[in-house]
Design a protein around this nucleic acid. Structure first.
Length: 888
DNA sequence: GGATTCACG
DNA sequence: ACGTACGTGAATCCC
């Protein structure tokens, strides 16, 4: 049967451009968009085995749509030159691949596709349209599927009329009406102001079309009715603009679009010219683009995945084969791994997969499997083994020996890639595509574990993908010089974190409840007073209602606006405080209400009835800089700055009688890291003499002696130091210090004059980032900055600040992670009873028996300070007490 | 589910 | 001229 793939060339190349990090070949030409496009093409060819293909392009700037509407696509950013130069490259590549392409002056790519699909459909062909543009869903029919790119470009989501009905409750043609009502800012199609997707769908479900909506406005009321009536013409025009024209005069025959696999003799050289080495390798071409005589496995037909569902009678077979197992996958359900359900385990070798349902894993017959899982000398490779460890732990099954975690590797290879699912990774690496978990299990309330037959197949496919990803990631880690970061730091840390989380920290429920009562009394008092002054009762937690009271009823001046109305944040309220007594009360209310809801009520919910402890979950694969994050509950943001909040820390206590809480934190770790990587003489000098860094900064910036630095100067210097670490901008500093931008700019200039090494670092790191497309930390942790060369000022500036900040924040993260690994090893070696419980970015918290207190007071800061040798000393300060509050 | 606010480093 | 300080997670409101 014939299968025709029609690709919206402009839409896909745009998406690819913004989705891919910058990439240039040795001739300095940008190639990232073509690279993304090529990946997508290869994926399409593999997945769909098309017999015919065509890529359509827009031609010229003016189309027939402009005849009725001059402003069509007006106000659009002009195509960045980095992208423009890639169009000819793409067209040449398509030629090399033997894929036909088409454009026609006066028409857009979607009109050409609309026309070809109409004709081909009539001739009885199956068609897949690939685009990033939702408008094209209007083309879907029984024989036309529309594939929309998801995040990135290699993943596409296909829509037949059925899926459109599911997602929108609309027929394909009604997509045009949807656009008519909502408009499209990117094409400058107006629509009806104030009508977004939600409203438009509601209207269409009720009336069916733009025309019917307009004919029945009498059934509507209020603002909505008014808006629709005033903008009726816009809606009609917008609908017209969104309608794909399917009668383009084409003289293209179906045979011209024929595609029978990549033309080896021309595809190879085309790839070689672009210097796409990894693709050449994947497609088994030699580096010069000629066909290889040693075809790689990837080119072999997809391997059948063989899975056996184990039962008590046959489990012996798996037990015998344990020696051959190369990877495993434990499927769990639930966000919080401390309370996750375990569904089952797949044990995989490259030849065979064995699925063991959870019930069987718990059974007596599976004892050898559990022993295998618990044996830390047997290396385990899999995906999210940290979660696996915790989930199994709470089910009474021990897990040890994690040696390669695919999720963790994926995070190191690109910490900003938000989709780390096995499904996405398989797509990214061009492996056999997987069914999405969502399609197997359903999601949210509809989650349901399917029968073993379906389940085992899916999980085995996942496990096979995991197994196949490992060598690819291993090679890439090595290529990026990140193998040591992965094997010697992050993998060991992952086990340490799991241990800390299982251990948990004791929280005194009664004390917390008592504190809650105090807060409650204060809240009641404050609320009463506020209502009295306002003269009315309202929802104090609603910024909208509060704004109404402050700015309308009381007539206070508006300081700042948000997208949706008046801003009432603390910064604004501080400025309003002199005008009206109510403002102070509101600020106090906010403070106490936050403590009550987040820290008293929130924490109470998280104290385990089983252990009397809170067991947070550290996420090792979230923060773009390499930091950890903490969830369920977040123990990295327990109040400390204000005394009222700081009291919360009193409820965190040792879990054994007569033990202590001991905490140690790095002093100025980020500025010390900056001193090291910038090699700035003055900054290094300051730390070598252990000076007060903010005072030293004030001295150099203001040109005064230590004695002459007053508190105001020190405060300014402190703000400048913060700004430097964050990637300074005069605007940001001016906001922070409440001074003008000019004054802030002067401070910054003076700072850079005094610390010229820092200026050089900031300039160099931004230059490096522009050249490489990424920045690194001291331990070679990497962060890509795809927007560093953007033509949009905001995007570019953000990336530049990130380039300055990430090596600093990230190296600090590297250092404390190292300290944790060393600390864990030392505790074990010396057989100490003390336990590491928490990490708060620059602080480690332990519980310590009395007889180890003196030792730990020395050992912890010493280990932290020696974690990594820099050109300036690291300094850690230790304290201890009966609870976390006292350890200050 | 997005927006707002606020807790931490 | 442009207009954000860097990195997180949780509670709440409101559509």
């Amino acid at each position: 049967m014939s299968k025709l793939i029609l690709i919206d060339g402009n839409s896909i190349i745009y998406r690819a451009f913004f989705a891919m990090p910058p990439l240039t070949n040795t001739k300095g030409l940008h190639t990232n968009a073509v690279y993304g496009f090529t990946n997508m093409l290869l994926r399409l060819i593999e997945d769909h085995k098309p017999t015919h293909m065509m890529v359509a392009f827009d031609a010229g700037k003016i189309t027939f749509r402009h005849e009725g509407y001059q402003e069509y696509k007006g106000g659009r950013e002009k195509t960045p030159p980095e992208l423009s130069e890639q169009f000819p490259l793409l067209k040449e590549l398509l030629q090399g691949f033997g894929i036909s392409q088409f454009e026609l002056s006066g028409y857009e790519a979607d009109d050409i596709i609309g026309t070809v699909s109409r004709i081909a459909e009539g001739a009885g062909h199956e068609i897949l349209v690939v685009t990033g543009d939702k408008d094209m869903l209007q083309l879907a029919s029984n024989h036309v599927q529309v594939g929309l790119t998801r995040k990135g470009v290699t993943e596409i989501e296909t829509y037949a009329p059925e899926q459109i009905q599911e997602r929108y409750g609309l027929e394909p043609l009604q997509i045009i009406d949807l656009k008519g009502l909502m408009g499209d800012a990117s094409d400058n199609i107006p629509g009806i102001p104030g009508v977004g997707e939600k409203t438009a769908l509601k209207l269409l479900h009720q009336f069916g079309s733009v025309e019917e909506v307009l004919a029945n406005t009498s059934e509507l009321k209020g603002k909505m009715k008014e808006k629709i009536e005033t903008h009726a013409d816009d809606a009609v025009l917008s609908k017209k603009l969104a309608t794909i024209f399917r009668e383009v005069p084409l003289d293209k025959s179906f045979d011209e679009m024929a595609f029978d696999g990549l033309k080896e003799d021309t595809a190879g050289p085309a790839l070689a010219k672009l210097e796409f080495k990894s693709l050449l390798e994947r497609l088994s071409f030699k580096a010069d683009g000629t066909a290889s005589d040693d075809p790689k496995q990837e080119k072999a037909p997809a391997k059948e995945i063989k899975v056996e569902v184990m039962d008590a009678d046959h489990i012996g077979e798996l037990i015998e084969a344990l020696g051959t197992i190369e990877a495993l996958h434990v499927e769990t359900n639930g966000e919080n791994p401390h309370h996750a359900d375990v569904i089952g385990v797949v044990f995989s070798s490259s030849e065979q997969h064995y699925y063991v349902p959870y019930e069987l894993l718990k059974a007596e017959e599976a004892e050898p499997l559990r022993k295998w899982l618990a044996d830390q000398d047997i290396p385990k490779r899999g995906y999210d083994l940290h979660r696996t460890d915790l989930a199994l732990h709470w089910k009474g099954i021990a897990f040890a020996g994690a040696s390669f975690d695919v999720q963790l590797a994926a995070y190191l290879l690109d910490p900003t890639d938000s989709n780390q699912s096995v499904h996405a990774l398989a797509g990214k690496y061009g492996l056999q595509s997987l069914t999405a978990d969502e399609d197997v299990f359903g999601k949210g309330a509809k989650y349901k574990v399917p029968e073993d037959e379906v389940l085992s197949k899916h999980l085995a496919a996942k496990s096979a993908a995991i197994l196949n990803l490992i060598p690819l990631q291993e090679r890439e880690l090595e290529g990026n010089e990140m193998a040591s970061l992965f094997h010697d730091l992050e993998m060991p840390l992952s086990r340490i974190l799991a241990d800390m989380e299982k251990q948990g920290i004791s929280a005194n429920k009664d004390d917390l409840t008592e504190l809650g009562k105090e807060f409650e009394a204060q809240i009641n008092e404050l609320v009463k007073e506020i209502y009295e002054i306002a003269g009315t009762e309202f929802n104090l937690n609603s910024p909208k209602q509060l704004g109404e009271i402050l700015f309308v009823n009381l007539g206070l001046p508006v300081i700042k606006k948000t997208k949706t109305g008046y801003s009432t944040d603390a910064e604004v309220l501080e400025k309003l405080a002199p005008y009206h007594d109510i403002v102070r009360l509101i600020l106090q209310y906010r403070t106490i209400a936050k403590l009550q809801s987040t820290y008293v009520e929130g924490l109470l919910k998280e104290i385990s009835p089983k252990t009397g402890k809170v067991h947070t979950f550290y996420r090792q694969t979230i923060a773009a800089t390499g930091r950890l994050s903490s969830q369920y509950p977040n123990l990295q943001n327990i109040p400390i700055r204000l005394e009222e909040g700081r009291k919360i820390r009193k409820v965190f206590v040792p879990s054994e009688p007569d033990w202590y809480i001991l905490a140690a934190d790095y002093s100025q770790i980020e500025l010390r890291v900056l001193a090291h990587i910038s090699d700035d003489t003055g900054l290094k000098e300051a730390f070598l003499h252990d000076m007060d860094i903010h005072t030293k900064t004030a001295m150099d910036v203001f040109g005064v002696t230590a004695e002459e630095v007053d508190s105001n100067m020190r405060r300014s210097a402190k703000a400048v130091n913060f700004g430097i670490v964050y990637g300074i901008s005069d605007y940001g500093l001016s906001q922070n210090l409440n001074i003008t931008r000019k004054e802030a700019a002067r401070f910054i200039d003076q700072y850079f004059d005094a610390f010229s090494g820092v200026r050089r670092y900031m300039d160099d790191i931004v230059k490096d980032a522009k050249r490489d497309g990424y920045v690194t930390t001291l331990l070679e942790r990497r962060r890509y900055l795809p927007e560093i060369n953007a033509s949009n000022f905001n995007l570019r500036s953000f990336a530049e600040r990130t380039a300055m900040n990430t090596p600093i924040q990230g190296t600090a993260a590297d250092i404390i992670k190292l300290a944790m690994v060393h600390m864990d090893a030392t505790l074990a070696e010396q057989k100490l009873k003390s336990r590491m419980l928490l990490q708060v970015h620059d602080e480690l918290v332990f519980e310590v028996p009395e007889d180890e207190l003196e030792l730990m007071k020395k050992l912890v800061p010493e280990t932290m300070e020696k974690a990594l040798a820099l050109s300036v000393p690291l300094k850690a300060e230790v304290s201890y007490g009966m609870n976390w509050y006292e350890a200050k």
